[in-house]
Design a protein around this nucleic acid. Structure first.
Lengths: 338, 338
DNA sequence: GACAAGTGGTAAATCGCTTTACCAAACTTC
DNA sequence: GAAGTTTGGTAAAGCGATTTACCACTTGTC
């Protein structure tokens, strides 16, 4: 039994089996055009087993210009929402036999990182970007674009490549309609960062469902952090004390919104109903279990990987995830005044 | 201005600058032993700028036997606790100029994955393993061990390499002592999976603080999932209704424990005080805001990367994180019966 | 016995970068 | 003006896997 301690090479195996390294490679890779006797093939495979051979990935990668690696850059890996996307991506990557290089644009300067070097230097086969508001990195990514297929998630920051979109407008509509059906008329909108593609789509959904009641002063924008959601909601509620329902575009911000409401002495849902887009584990364990619209996040991760692995010249410009958002009723929403 | 569209090579640059590719390489890498005229150097660098040169990472990797990549395998990337570890790891990886390849042993079969191929084939410079209860993967990992430095987090599954440990016993002591000081005597222990290194260390902490009151029937084990924490706690509380305080080794299980208590009609903290190891964002937003002992998780991630990057022959067998756990009082603990 | 058609392989050129060893020409030095 | 020394580089050998082109030998065929 080999001990696997030696970094065996093709040449080493060839030597042990008494054949050429070309033959070994062709046997291992099941070259259809190869004509080889059964015994030679077996003796080669035996040696391969013995030395526990594993091909050198750098050599393969150099020769084939394929790294077997996908860069997945999110802007805050700690956000539970991204965890879900990543889960779907991981599973699909497994199927495509790719490994995932994780980048966190919040955790540091992606532009100068090793990851960027790899992207620029042919070290990844594709790039998936979840970049809600990245700035300086654009240059690097842009430069990379010609070399590597790029898939953007949720928002188009103008890099070309494909844009994968969730059913944003429908989700916002579902959330808003839920409150409307409960009897709410003055419904605030705690949106995500202004200008992002998905923010605008969700705004459209809210506006559509609000109809004539869609007053711009009911809208506020917050990045997906609880603290910011809290601060922004506080201002919104002070500005428009008549708001009886609130649609949040991000569940983390929604948690902040709940804090703000409670801090203002409001009862949720009696004084303020809150519904959010995106679910989170332990939503039911919250002080106020949030009613939410669940998005097909894992599917988005999966589609992103699948798309970036397409060998075709040009990727589709847009890919819409069609799976319907799922409304989950919990205890943060009720009829107004009750 | 170059368009960066062409995968420029050293040879291409050499041709354009009218020098040899060896010279270009040595200029780029600031070879101290190189003697070169100022103008030649400048003209080389000018061409490098022009074509927006980025070295081919596969070639570098092949030549140098360094990939600039660390594999980081967790057993459930969605667990918020690991998110924190990963955050520290990311930051340190940035400093070490390494990229992180993320593996999720829950998301699929790590053994057959592309990641495993890379580990075995010299495609990573190190392997960090957070493997609370992995089984089949051991073989692969073991095989990899001779080729690549391995760092295990929190628990030793016998792979050799380094083991990074949190202050487990102190954390459990702090949690238990907190309840003792509140006046609790019959304190349950919702431990993590039996046999894991950190589980045993924390058990020691609980036992030490409990002294003669450390009855084995007060102990139950649960994997870090809310559902399992709930089920196991339910049984424990039914078996020992006299328990007035509960120390949980994992915050996710603690959330489940809270569910179980509530389902049994108990009020937390009046009828049952719950304290957990590990903090989580939004702990204060929970129905019962959990009192916790915060662990230096980000530091552990950082230390893991730092350790795995050490060039020395042999890594230290054990590395203890010395930073003290921090107790955070919230509303899940109180004096018994009050 | 000459020619074609298999059979069972091998040699050698890449892929792009790094690094060691070496070298020609121009200066010193005595 | 012969022997060093410095200056400013270059040639070439890898790293390990893949792949194309080719080759020697054996069989069959008429």
């Amino acid at each position: 039994m080999g001990d696997g301690c030696d970094m065996a090479t093709l040449a080493e195996i060839a030597r042990r089996a008494g054949v050429s390294s070309a033959l070994v490679s062709r046997v291992i890779n099941n070259d259809e055009t190869l004509r080889v006797s059964q015994e030679t093939r077996e003796s080669v495979l035996r040696v391969v087993q013995e030395v526990n051979y594993a091909p050198n990935v750098a050599a393969q990668s150099l020769r084939s210009s394929k790294s077997g690696t996908i860069a997945f850059v999110v802007h805050d890996a700690a956000n539970p929402v991204y965890g879900e996307i990543l889960r779907g991506a991981q599973a699909e990557a497994e199927r495509q036999n790719k490994a995932i290089l994780l980048g966190d644009s919040a955790a540091g300067n992606v532009g100068n990182s090793r990851l960027a070097q790899m992207i620029r230097g042919g070290g990844v086969d594709g790039l998936i970007l979840q970049a809600a508001g990245v700035q300086a990195d654009n240059l690097i990514i842009k430069a990379a674009h010609k070399k590597v297929p790029v898939v953007q998630l949720q928002t188009d920051i103008g890099l070309g490549g494909s844009l994968v979109q969730l059913p944003d407008a429908p989700a916002a509509e579902i959330a808003t309609r839920h409150l409307r059906e409960l009897g709410h008329r003055t419904i605030g909108c705690l949106a995500t960062v202004e200008g992002l593609t998905f923010t605008e789509s969700r705004m459209k959904g809210w506006q559509h469902e609000m109809g004539a009641d869609a007053d711009p002063s009911l809208v506020a924008h917050a990045a997906p952090f609880a603290e910011e959601g809290e601060a922004v909601t506080r201002e919104l509620l002070l500005r428009r004390p008549d708001i009886s329902g609130l649609v949040c575009f991000n569940v983390v911000a929604a948690i902040g919104a709940t804090r703000a409401a409670i801090a203002l002495g409001l009862d949720v849902p009696r004084d303020l109903s809150i519904v959010s887009i995106h679910d989170v584990k332990f939503a039911e364990d919250l002080k106020v279990p949030l009613s939410v619209v669940r998005m097909p996040l894992a599917e988005m991760g999966q589609v992103a990987i699948k798309t970036v692995c397409i060998e075709a010249r040009e990727l589709p410009a847009r890919i819409a995830i069609e799976t319907s958002p799922e409304f989950v009723q919990r205890q943060s929403t009720a009829a107004p005044g009750r």
